[in-house]
Design a protein around this nucleic acid. Sequence first.
RNA 1: GGAGAGGUCGCAUAGUGGCCUAGUGCGCUCGCUUGGAAAGCGGGUAUGUCGAAAGGCAUCGAGGGUUCGAAUCCCUCCCUCUCCGCCA
Length: 434
Amino acid sequence: MLDIEYIRENTEKVKEACRNKNLAVDVDRLLVLDKQRRKFRFALDEVARKRNELARQAKGDKPDQQIIEEGKKLKEKAKSAEDKLKEAEQEYNNLMLALPNIPTDDTPVGKDESANEVIRSVGDKPQFDFEPKEHWELGQDLDVIDLERAAKVTGARFVYLKGQLVLMQFALIQYVLSVLTDRAVIKEIIEKNGWSIADTPFIPVVPPVMVRPEVMQSMDRLEPKEERYYIPGDDLYLVGSAEHTLGPMHMEETLRADGLPIRYVGYSTSFRREAGSYGKDLKGILRVHQFDKMEMEVLSLPENGLAEQELIVAIQEHIVHSLGLPYQVMMVSTGDMGKPDARQIDINTWLPGQDKYRETHTSDFMSDYQSRRLKIKVKRENGSGNYVYMNDATAIALGRMLIAIMENYQEADGSIKVPKVLQKYLPFKVIDKG
RNA sequence: GGAGAGGUCGCAUAGUGGCCUAGUGCGCUCGCUUGGAAAGCGGGUAUGUCGAAAGGCAUCGAGGGUUCGAAUCCCUCCCUCUCCGCCA
């Protein structure tokens, strides 16, 4: 949600953001409703004041008939004033919720993903003296990915991960936790880039994977609903990311400025219905309904919000790079970015089997768009500031990183070498048929 | 899942229809006092919203209702605690 004062003062900018994000929201109508809403609010307050006065008059005594009559009249007036206000406010709120966040100035403007800009490409693509295979082929041959039985038991786009691949998933979790919880690593990245933000390490969290609808609405992650799994008996949604329950962890709280930034790394299973992706990535585990992921979530002072995103991206790069995977960093354009994003940066990792870079990480700078909906505030000395800035980002999407490792580290015989940084967590250096 | 008890200002508590414009204690803070401190005494100490301001309005877990008038009565929901059941 945007600040109504900001909308009044920067109407053109808000309209431009809607256009650039391909969203149709009637901003002029919103401003009309804003005026109405305040007018009706004032009228209602006036009636309430009169009612309070009358109640004070009646205090202590048995009220006489005149006061009762007067009170009844005021009650009627209050009711109709309230109805008018509610009606205006409802439409106002709907429009407020429909408005997207304003993209930062350095976000490329464009209709869709074709306008995304690659900022940098890092790492050398591996050279093979054989035709590299895709991950599903490798996985099936090594008997570490079983899609057929998963389809039989649960359905398409579900998977059994098995054996050494599972051990590697847990090695990845261990490795990523070791990076994110180490103050020295965070400090080194910050100093190398000359940023002036805290070296606070990330606190590991295993969050709930179910969430209330109204909380998802506050996160602006409920829509499109078709993308979410829903449990009617309990009126709960399954999260599509740990972000969905990490972000609202501090909802309706006022945080101390000296307690910021708060940095979390959540580990959870994520559930996505993949509505609208029929026919896309049908083979393998690139796009499945259930996958495990580690997610960063950072609450910070407003002035540090952008630097926090820079830090997050640097951490993502550190992880991908240390795993020996070639990648590119991409600035996502207005047409492709999320509605609540002010700035979105993706990391696409090289998949030799597909001969393509594919999205493995995303980083969402939300400014105060989510915190305003979630009512997460910060108390400051000078009284200003109000809402915290929020960032969320992939720490590691386990399935997709496994794919990247399988395809980049494959050998001619179909075995897969274990990246160096993971070796200390595993009792083997190669995934093979054993 | 069943039974019961609760949710009030940063914390603790009082408050069973008008004296609540929510009291008291603690904490915090300013001042008096002091060589300095403690104690003591006095003042201040929530958030949102409308307004240029004065000030108004709203908020006692949330939402509805009854009433001239609700922290207080009724309904629905959320959460916490205790006991029982079930369970990794």
